[in-house]
Design a protein around this nucleic acid. Structure first.
Lengths: 161, 161
DNA sequence: GCGGCGGTGATACACTGTAACAAACCCGCC
DNA sequence: GGCGGGTTTGTTACAGTGTATCACCGCCGC
């Protein structure tokens, strides 16, 4: 996973994400079951967005088959609780890097080279979007902001190498 | 289709869109074949985003079956030439309401009630996005901006009725 | 005519996601 | 301990979305 330039206060890394997931569930009286934990781990470990079927395969082993439908259920749970995000343009899932209010304007930065996905949020962007929507007479309920391109790390790597 | 509040210079309506498609193809030396025309019509006629399979069904008739794969090819062609857009969050397609540079920041406003999709673009929004990306060290290649909510027409309709 | 090329038809298939129902589990309660 | 009810998971089947492959057709230039 590449660095996160756009935001701090970001307890990143597998451990931090699992700890946060656990905390959130305890707080809300929800069960952080073994399956949900495993799915969370699988999403958090991977350096890039994972498809549901990828996760199902990763969790399966000789003698244990995890069906995609189970993965979807775990992912739904994790999404409802803001622990993972869905990348619509990829039909794939990433861990939520930092806690942010649900529905808040977060942009996903998807690198074409390394496949990594970073999150960025900005007041400025959100304000611009709000004003544009208001001008159009549109009341937003949910936004999808995804940008595909080249992340800083990959560009450096390319220039250096 | 509801009104377009956010932009003008918008030769909307079936005729205008077909004319533009024809013009674009002639300009670029590309073929605006019957099938492509029919797919363009199907997308332009419908008041809301159409799935590829919907289009295939609409074009099929007793004695003539249009396979989804043919529709996809036509849609790819039309998308490459900026005549239709894909709505990632719906797996569906809409006609491009107004000519805009490829890759330019256009937001799709998707109404939950009527299913209509409007386009809006704004300098302000684009600037905000550009600055956010620059701050994150990210070089954009392609953006997807989709907002789901309630369009003005539907809100009025609801208050009146 | 002949070869190349783009478009279309047709089949098959991969990938993504959901519905429905059964079984296991947990927990409070009698 | 046993019972009832809610939640989670397993399993199967299926719907929806998109692509690969190959064959055929029509057109155009040589």
């Amino acid at each position: 996973m590449h660095r996160h330039e756009g935001h701090d206060a970001c307890e990143t890394g597998l451990g931090g994400m699992l700890a946060r997931a656990e905390a959130v569930c305890r707080e809300r009286g929800l069960q952080f079951t073994p399956l949900r934990r495993e799915v969370m781990e699988a999403v958090a470990e991977a350096g890039k967005a994972q498809g549901a079927y990828d996760i199902a395969e990763k969790l399966s082993a000789p003698g244990r088959r995890v069906a995609p439908v189970s993965v979807y259920r775990a992912l739904d749970f994790l999404m409802e609780n803001g622990l993972v995000h869905r990348i619509a343009s990829r039909n794939a899932f990433i861990p939520c890097a930092h806690g942010h209010a649900p529905g808040e304007g977060v942009v996903f930065l998807i690198c074409r080279k390394c496949g990594g996905v970073d999150e960025a949020s900005s007041e400025e962007l959100e304000d611009g979007l709000d004003r544009t929507l208001k001008r159009a007479g549109f009341t937003p309920a949910h936004s999808i902001l995804e940008v595909e391109g080249d992340c800083g790390a990959c560009r450096e790597r390319q220039q250096a190498g």
